[in-house]
């Protein structure tokens, strides 16, 4: 109960990453999000290995059924993979780039997705409930600045986690830029493109401005990725905990049985509805992070991409669309 009362005062404290009890490794506090990220990664790898087993073409003795996915989970993963590959990544990046970065982008999507989903499951509260009812506690005298939970929490509501993911995307995008454009091409890209650099001498006046904007954009793009994911997760969980905290506030204010019950019921129903929304947001934010990374990668092959598709009409429009969206 003390946890809920604390949440009612400051629901954000429930979201913020905290050290786990007195766990330390090499004189470093073990944060809850570290364990959650590691645990979620292990679960993700195991789940996807299971899915891959079902997606593999079966024995010839199965006849034509050997081509079908074995199990609903494999089919679900396949549907997501096929949709992302055929409907999103190939139209945005082209088949060659999509094939090159498909493995990374799919891994990124599923990794963020499982972190978001794990964040929605109240593992921390389950820990505290177990401690409360069993009287067993792994740590003594855990202060408010630390947590007694061993796993759980919204890891993607930690800027440290989302920044790490964005930094990886940053390096992938820049490596792609160097690979595709070379150092000279990359610098030309920063200066506004080949047409501008090799164009009229008067246009050179704008190159410093464009260079500064593009240079800033290199860092702003991953920063935007990190902040978008972090902010969405924090906002969603804050809203959810605020709704759940209404009942605790009412109880704390000693409003009487019926008032407390009514407020708790209404806020509980609202929290359930928001949870459904949060499930959608969890999937959406994972998708947006992955998709924007794909767009940034394709931007680094922008000139070749455009040249390769000159005069393709509608196909070219498909390529331009998400790119323009990313710029905006």
């Amino acid at each position: 109960m003390s946890l809920f009362l604390a949440n009612s005062s400051d629901p954000v404290s429930h979201i913020v990453d905290k050290p786990i009890g007195n766990w330390r490794l090499f004189d470093v506090d073990i944060m809850l999000s570290m364990v959650t990220v590691l645990g979620s990664a292990i679960v993700l790898v195991l789940l996807l290995i299971y899915a891959a087993k079902g997606s593999k073409t079966g024995q010839a003795s199965l006849g034509n059924r050997r081509y079908l996915p074995a199990g609903k989970f494999s089919a679900l993963v396949e549907v997501i993979v096929v949709y992302l590959r055929d409907e999103m990544l190939i139209p945005v990046m082209g088949a060659r780039l999509a094939a090159r970065y498909l493995s990374y982008l799919l891994s990124l999507f599923f990794f963020i997705l499982i972190l978001n989903i794990v964040g929605l499951i109240p593992f921390v509260d389950v820990h505290y409930a177990i401690y409360h009812f069993t009287g067993l506690m792994p740590f003594d005298n855990v202060p408010e600045s630390k947590t007694a939970a061993l796993f759980g929490g919204a890891a993607t509501a930690s800027i440290s986690v989302t920044a790490a993911l964005a930094v990886i995307s940053f390096f992938v995008v820049q490596v792609q830029g160097f690979r595709e454009l070379g150092i000279g091409g990359w610098l030309e890209h920063l200066c506004g493109g080949r047409e501008l650099v090799r164009g009229s001498i008067f246009l050179w006046l704008v190159i410093p401005i464009i260079f500064l904007v593009e240079l800033g954009g290199i860092f702003v793009k991953p920063a935007a990725l990190a902040i978008r994911l972090f902010a969405n997760m924090v906002a969603g969980h804050t809203l959810l905990l605020t709704l759940l905290g209404f009942g605790a506030v009412a109880l704390n204010a000693d409003l009487g049985f019926f008032a407390v019950s009514g407020i708790t019921l209404v806020s509980g129903v609202g929290a359930i509805l928001i949870t459904f929304l949060e499930v959608f947001v969890a999937v959406l934010q994972a998708f947006i992070f992955m998709f924007l990374t794909a767009v940034f990668i394709s931007l680094m092959a922008h000139e070749e991409h455009e040249e390769g598709h000159e005069g393709e009409g509608a196909h070219g429009e498909n390529h331009g669309h998400p790119t323009a969206a990313a710029h905006s």
Partner: peptide, 19 residues
């Protein structure tokens, strides 16, 4: 009981590296 407001923007380098 009011507790000190937690900072959601607090950056932890080790969490960053771990991730």
């Amino acid at each position: 009981m009011l507790i000190a407001a937690a900072d959601p923007l607090a950056f932890n380098f080790y969490t960053f590296i771990t991730t």
